[in-house]
Computed example of a mutant assay.
Amino acid sequence: MKTVRNKLALLVPALTALLLAVTNLWALDPGADGYYKTGEGIREKSIAFISVNVYRISHHIKELPSAKSKQALIDADVDKKFVLTLMRDVDREKMQNALKDSLALNGYTNKANIDKFLGAMTNELKEKSHVTFSYSAEKKATTIKVDGGGTATVAGVDFMKGIWSIWFGKIDQPKLTEQLMSKLP
């Protein structure tokens, strides 16, 4: 019996150290810019019987939410951003309409804010170009920056929640939402 206790006394600390080491492999650390990358995925568009990759999207946030939920990411009033990298040329109007439809699906309908924001898409969106949606908690404003296009900023937490609902709210590709949250602890 004493031998079993001695072996357990040695085994427990070793197992604890191993568990801590494995847990740290999955820990989410901020990047050099201070943002945590919560996940990334690919937006697909189904046309007839085929799926086409439209863009790669990643989500970054300065402070991790207290709960791992879509709503917590939408509501988080902290610096955060989405970065889209186009995987093909995309017609500007098609992208604008898709974003408008997504905002409407999630209950955001302020036409003036939507038009101002999406007005930053002044040219066709080319393969490998980037579109960044960023929110500043200090300014309470959401900015869009389009490679080869323009920028626009809309004030208000309600607008930020509308934009974040595009990917964390009602969406026709729920797998993408899961991928954008996949690295959250």
Results as ranks from 00 to 15, higher is better:
residue 66 S to K: 15
residue 172 D to Y: 08
residue 83 V to F: 05
residue 58 S to V: 12
residue 40 E to K: 10
residue 1 M to K: 09
residue 185 P to E: 08
residue 10 L to K: 11
residue 137 A to K: 06
residue 112 A to C: 03
residue 137 A to F: 02
residue 117 F to W: 08
residue 77 D to N: 13
residue 3 T to P: 00
residue 47 I to P: 01
residue 110 N to E: 12
residue 174 P to I: 07
residue 31 G to P: 04
residue 117 F to R: 07
residue 100 K to M: 09
residue 40 E to F: 08
residue 19 L to H: 05
residue 55 Y to L: 08
residue 89 D to Q: 02
residue 161 K to Y: 02
residue 102 S to H: 07
residue 91 D to I: 07
residue 98 A to M: 07
residue 86 L to I: 04
residue 81 K to C: 11
residue 55 Y to S: 09
residue 147 D to C: 00
residue 33 D to R: 00
residue 182 S to A: 13
residue 50 I to T: 14
residue 47 I to D: 10
residue 85 T to I: 09
residue 29 D to S: 13
residue 68 K to A: 14
residue 98 A to K: 06
residue 24 N to D: 12
residue 93 E to C: 06
residue 17 A to D: 04
residue 32 A to L: 08
residue 95 M to L: 15
residue 128 K to D: 14
residue 47 I to W: 09
residue 92 R to Y: 11
residue 122 T to Q: 12
residue 45 K to S: 12
residue 2 K to N: 12
residue 165 S to M: 07
residue 121 M to F: 10
residue 137 A to E: 07
residue 30 P to T: 07
residue 99 L to I: 15
residue 137 A to Y: 00
residue 10 L to V: 06
residue 44 E to T: 13
residue 8 L to Q: 05
residue 93 E to L: 13
residue 3 T to K: 13
residue 34 G to V: 00
residue 177 T to R: 13
residue 130 H to C: 03
residue 129 S to W: 05
